[in-house]
Amino acid sequence: MAKINLYNTYLNMEKEDIILSFKGDITKDLLSSVYQIVEARMESENEDQKRKKKFYHVLVECLQNMYHHMESLQESGAKGELHDQAGSAIFMVGRGEAGCYLIYTGNFILHENAEQLKEKIDKINGMNPVELKAYYLERLGASELSEKGGAGLGIIDIARKSGNKIEYDFQTISETFSFFTLSAKIN
């Protein structure tokens, strides 16, 4: 097994301006800890309050979106070749040009759910802010709350609050699974 050169990892993260990264099981407790870390860090930073709030809001939605994906994947029982990895995912938070915040999440998803998700994001990405707001209100007012709590509003809200298009990728990793990557940018 090749040894990890932690210094190189450190340098890479420094270069990419990564604030936080995690790979592993996504649990409620983990998310609680992440929120605490991020809040503490934001408090210490001399940053515009509005931008901080938007970032925190989008971060919560991105992480919970990933959490619900993992939850439904585990409930589907379709572990297949993923074995224990089925509850595992990755996320990163970094800074980019002009101090923008970047949020990345990556998780496994069943092929059968990928197409629907792709269509949903494409639809949302095609909307301007006025259309997004109308769509959000329509979804909020119309649908019953799903037990999962997802209610389909998360993705709309990420687009609405971030003010940018949602970038995504689906990478086929087997006959059953894709790896879904989502990235959100907060100016």
Binding site: K53, V60, E61, Q64, L140, G149, L153, G154, I156
Partner: peptide, 13 residues
């Protein structure tokens, strides 16, 4: 201070 989208549904209820 903050609420997530799944809370937004419950608040409406």
């Amino acid at each position: 201070e903050y609420f997530n989208t799944s809370s937004s549904k419950c608040i409406l209820d």
